[in-house]
């Protein structure tokens, strides 16, 4: 009789070990597929910086003013194959600190380009014009970001302000709510 440690595993014993493994893989795959089909993705969003400034410029020489910084919009989409988008909606026109003058928010515009990352179903950074009435798209994507949702996709967004002699003097401000969501 050979020592036990020299015995080859019997087919029945092998099955006892591999059955749970195969079952586990099937269950996990089932959950992932179910999750994917239901489009229940987790989206996280970050903006950097979260504040930009348009300096004073002569409208004759600078018909368009570039913002003080490029805003990086970063999205992380978890596993899934659903479509999602990043939109912006202004709280109103740019409002003077004296509360008496405004600059139309539609004079704030942006161009956007890919900064880093990838999306399983493709991503597209989009230029646009700020609006206080309807959300405007900054980024459209599909699927997960990075490797199986562990990673992100980001756009560099260049904001500009249409310059105009009609603007009254003062300090203006407004907030732009940026939302990443499934449609």
């Amino acid at each position: 009789m050979r020592p036990v440690w020299q015995n080859k595993p019997e087919p029945k014993a092998m099955a006892m070990f591999t059955q749970p493994l195969i079952a586990g893989i099937l269950i996990v795959m089932g959950l992932l597929i179910t999750n994917s089909l239901s489009h229940t993705q987790t989206l996280s969003l970050s903006l950097n910086p979260s504040s930009i400034n348009f300096p004073d410029q002569n409208p004759t020489n600078f018909p368009s003013i570039s913002a003080s910084a490029i805003v990086q919009v970063q999205v992380t989409a978890s596993w899934g194959n659903g479509t999602w988008s990043v939109t912006s909606l202004a709280g109103g026109d740019l409002l003077n600190s004296d509360g008496r003058s405004v600059i139309p928010i539609s004079n704030v515009r942006w161009t956007a380009s890919r900064a880093a990352g990838n999306c399983s179903g493709g991503c597209s950074c989009m230029g646009g014009t700020a609006s206080r009435s309807s959300p405007q798209h900054i980024l459209e994507g599909s699927g997960y970001t990075g490797f199986l949702g562990f990673g992100s996709y980001s756009c560099n967004v260049n904001f500009t302000l249409v310059n105009d002699w009609a603007y009254n003097t003062g300090s203006y401000s407004q907030t732009l709510t940026v939302t990443a969501a499934n449609p």
């Binding site: 959950l31 992932l32 179910t34 999750n35 239901s38 229940t40 993705q41 987790t42 989206l43 996280s44 969003l45 970050s46 903006l47 979260s50 504040s51 930009i52 400034n53 348009f54 300096p55 004073d56 003013i65 913002a67 805003v71 978890s78 596993w79 899934g80 912006s88 740019l94 600059i103 704030v108 904001f159 302000l161 603007y167 009254n168 003097t169 003062g170 300090s171 203006y172 401000s173 407004q174 907030t175 732009l176 709510t177 940026v178 939302t179 990443a180 969501a181 499934n182």
Partner: peptide, 22 residues
């Protein structure tokens, strides 16, 4: 995976400032 169903939107705010001098 189920945690993913509870939150699938995220929001941030961007503050825009502009200065207009005489």
């Amino acid at each position: 995976l189920l945690m993913g169903t509870s939150t699938f939107a995220a929001t941030q705010t961007l503050t825009i400032n502009a200065t207009v001098a005489a």
